[in-house]
Write a protein that binds this DNA or RNA. Structure first.
Lengths: 159, 159
DNA sequence: GAACTAGAGTTGACGTGACAACTCTAGCAG
DNA sequence: CTGCTAGAGTTGTCACGTCAACTCTAGTTC
């Protein structure tokens, strides 16, 4: 019988299809962004976040919090992006500590161009292929899961 | 206005939550598998596929097709798994070409143990948090998208 | 002011994944 | 037999992401 420790073939198939569809979707979005605008999804996320802030400057920790990323992930990403000239890590603060991240003109231009294309891709691959019921189901599931998992990780948990 | 080249704030938020939930889910599944059974999700996929075949042997291309992976991804993964003793690449064929992948006893044992735990995790994180209607909606979306994207990539496309 | 400490940011190691270039085998044309 | 080609499998390179360890700064305490 279908107890907690096993899944029926239908359930496996469902899970499999779901995960595969998800991977295909994310991959395609990423690929289009890379091909048409020369930036990756991770880079796009950072650029957009930075661009949405008054003076295009932020601290690493802010950025990490805002994106829900680990700070080491942000640091690595920034290193790669700095190498490509999309942004600069400045010694803003006092005496040699790099405390600021600033968008370069090149980075700013890249986002501007990418945003519209990215929106178009998402609309084409996601929204145009979603019925209202599917969107509702996915939306409800997403917010529920985010709440569930982020709450679980911030609490001590059931040891 | 909400034309094809822009998304409303609600749409952005929806997309953002969706992608984040997906990442959290995949990460959590992976983490549990790793912590409780010492194998990654990628390894699990390969082990299960191999285990589901009569003599526990397969060709790389079959494996890739069955999983929907690129063959280089399979090759890299096999290299890592061979290093850990979960499987063996045998010189099955004729004269020095490695044409077969075989599960080792150690690998077989690892899957056996992991399958139940993995099923439990999936049930806990996915099925238990999904109403039948939501599952149906997500299932329909998944199969539709898989069909759409795999068909698009196998055709010449609208060049 | 010297030692302690907390937090910010960085780095290294490693597994993962995509893409392109390569090698080897086999089948076929001449 | 020689050369051509197709396909299988492998490898290198790079980007991405996590974890753990590290450095540096600043604020506190004595």
């Amino acid at each position: 019988m279908a107890d907690a420790a096993s899944l029926s073939p239908e359930e496996w198939a469902f899970w499999d299809a779901w995960m595969r569809a998800q991977r295909l979707l994310a991959g395609e979005v990423d690929r289009v962004l890379q091909r048409d605008f020369g930036i990756s999804k991770a880079e796009f996320s950072i650029l957009v976040t930075l661009q949405g802030v008054p003076d295009r400057r932020m601290r690493v920790t802010e950025l990490a919090g805002s994106l829900g990323w680990e700070k080491s992930r942000v640091a690595h990403q920034l290193t790669r992006m700095e190498r490509r000239g999309l942004l600069e890590r400045s010694e803003a603060g006092a005496a040699g500590r790099r405390t600021g991240i600033a968008l370069t003109p090149s980075g700013e231009e890249a986002v501007e161009r990418a945003i519209r294309g990215h929106a178009r891709t998402i609309r084409r691959l996601a929204f145009d292929r979603l019925t209202p019921e599917q969107a509702a189901a996915i939306g409800a599931w997403s917010t529920g899961l985010i709440e569930h998992l982020t709450a679980a990780s911030s609490e001590p948990g059931e040891s």
